[in-house]
């Protein structure tokens, strides 16, 4: 009995230690984001909160127009999520609920896209976006991401676990395929949809290379590029302001992740079963 108590206490201690190590960079960023420039530059570094939080956060927000970038990133994230998830739902429905000529070929085409991440086709992709006059537009940042093998696979996995008696029953009731899709199938897979929203929000919000290339004007920049801009604007190593900017930009994905964590955990692992 005594031995297990010690073991449990040790385990708690170990877990807390892990949390502290993993969270350390962000805890320090939080502390620094409240310090004045003098406090930040003190050596040895002072690790207590300062009095300059309001000033730092306001400066970070205004100096590179972080508000506009947050808006852009939000619009793009939801634009991609809505387009990608609706298109993937239809495709996964076609692959699991119909037999048709060329099914294997079309599925193969979807499969092959796993071999074509953005960096592999970036040279010509950039050229297409330029010829479409989509540089510095939301379309250029959203439309190329609407088709997704990963989302289709996750949905196929989920659709396969839905009992096929439901299809038979709705056929007897005279349901059309689309009625079955909207009234029976969609309500059943809510937690998977939740997982897809979380995965894709974080993926798009955190994207860097493509937005860096596909935008030039300040008005169209996204938050991730904003971090880099903040670091070059605040050149005198004004880490208080930079860390304030970093904290602001990490809040939306963290909120979505924590709020939707349960459905995310349920759906996320479907990925490894493709």
């Amino acid at each position: 009995m005594r031995q297990t108590t010690i073991k449990t206490a040790g385990l708690h201690l170990l877990l807390i230690l892990c949390i502290l190590i993993i969270s350390m960079p962000v805890i320090l960023a939080l502390i620094i984001s409240t310090q004045t420039e003098a406090q930040v530059l003190s050596y040895p570094p002072g690790l207590v909160p300062g009095s300059n939080a309001v000033h730092n956060y306001v400066t970070a927000w205004t100096s590179v127009d972080l508000g506009r970038m947050m808006l852009n990133s939000t619009i793009i994230a939801f634009g991609v999520i809505i387009g990608k998830i609706s298109m993937s739902l239809l495709a996964a429905f076609a692959f699991t609920h119909f037999n048709f000529k060329g099914k294997k070929l079309l599925f193969g085409l979807v499969l092959v896209t796993l071999l074509l991440p953005v960096p592999v086709r970036i040279v010509a992709l950039f050229d297409i976006i330029r010829r479409l006059h989509w540089i510095d537009t939301y379309a250029g940042l959203m439309v190329p991401f609407w088709a997704s093998a990963t989302s289709i696979f996750i949905l196929i996995q989920r659709f396969r676990t839905v009992p096929s008696e439901l299809v038979d029953a709705s056929k007897i009731d005279g349901c059309t395929p689309m009625q079955y899709f909207f009234k029976v199938l969609l309500p059943l897979i809510r937690s998977t949809l939740g997982a897809l929203v979380v995965i894709n929000f974080i993926y798009i919000w955190n994207q860097y290379l493509w937005p860096l290339m596909a935008t030039n004007t300040k008005e169209m920049r996204v938050v991730q590029i904003g971090i880099k801009m903040l670091m070059s604007t605040e050149s005198s190593n004004n880490w208080g302001v930079i860390m304030a900017g970093v904290i602001i930009t990490m809040i939306p994905p963290l909120l979505i992740f924590i709020v939707m964590q349960e459905s995310f955990m349920k759906g996320f692992a479907l990925q490894s079963e493709k």
Partner: peptide, 25 residues
């Protein structure tokens, strides 16, 4: 609290570690 850095971006990780290891302080 052990998996939450998943939600952070590579750019944010870059900024954080740039601060942690910057030569000045």
């Amino acid at each position: 609290f052990l998996i939450w850095p998943y939600a952070l971006s590579p750019a944010i990780a870059g900024a954080l570690f740039n601060f942690l290891f910057n030569p000045a302080n």
